[in-house]
Amino acid sequence: MAVQRTSVWKTIALYVGLTAAAIVVLFPFFWMVVTAFKEPGQAFSTELFPTGPTISNFKRVLGDFGFGRYFVNSVIVATTAAAFATLFASLAGYVFAKKQFFMRDRLFGLLLLSLMIPGMMYVVPQFAIITKLGWMNTYKAMIIPHLANVFGLFLMRQYMLTIPSELIEAAEMDGASERQVFTTIMVPLSIPIIATLFLLTFQFHWNNFLWQLIVTNVERLYTVPVGLAMFKSAHEELYTLKMAGSCISILPIAVLFFFAQRYFIEGMTMGAVKE
């Protein structure tokens, strides 16, 4: 757009607009943090900053209400799942980008087609499969069914297509095995997309509330969102504690986003306009 000479007034107006928009968009999170630091009795005071902020809410949810345990579960589930989902997607992305094989294009079409299926479709049959396998109330039930990340595979393939095939041919000429080609050429050259996919799958699994709710019914295995949902229905009125639990629930993703926002933004919007 033509923005050669932005006048002072226009600049001010723009900053006012941007700031107003930011306040509206971020207000829920601001209010969550503020309420989490209030005394329970003050939960509904309209002061923008609590008088005498307290961390007792955090102490209580982490100690008395088991959020410490939930947090550990969430870390275990999200980290393991992200690591394997990223590994599987890079292995598969590599062959889709660089190999000719039987049914390749049809298979790829089928994979992309599956992206269309609504998530609710999977809830009942996946639950039935998990029950039949005897996996209810296990970490693997929370992790394994979502390790085939088709969108991730798509991102990997698109990225790896841009790596020159000559590099692979040269390495093969020098006698490198398939495994060596993958680990010494493809992986090092794909670090940005690997990091992106790891973050996206970590975020997905951290927020994968519905599935984690369905396959766990013992408190020892609750993840933070499941614990939060259970807490919500059991203690509807304990607002300050609920907000403290909410803070704990989104903190890791917010921190990751703070340090790696470029990866998040690019990864999430990359596949969108392509095709």
Binding site: A21, L26, M32, Q203, S246, F264, M268
Partner: peptide
């Protein structure tokens, strides 16, 4: 500002919903 506007997109819908009920 771009980061600020994008941030809620990556955060958990469940938490966002719970905060809005308040």
């Amino acid at each position: 500002y771009r980061s600020a506007f994008f941030l809620p997109y990556v955060l958990d819908m469940l938490v966002v919903g719970i905060v809005w009920t308040l």
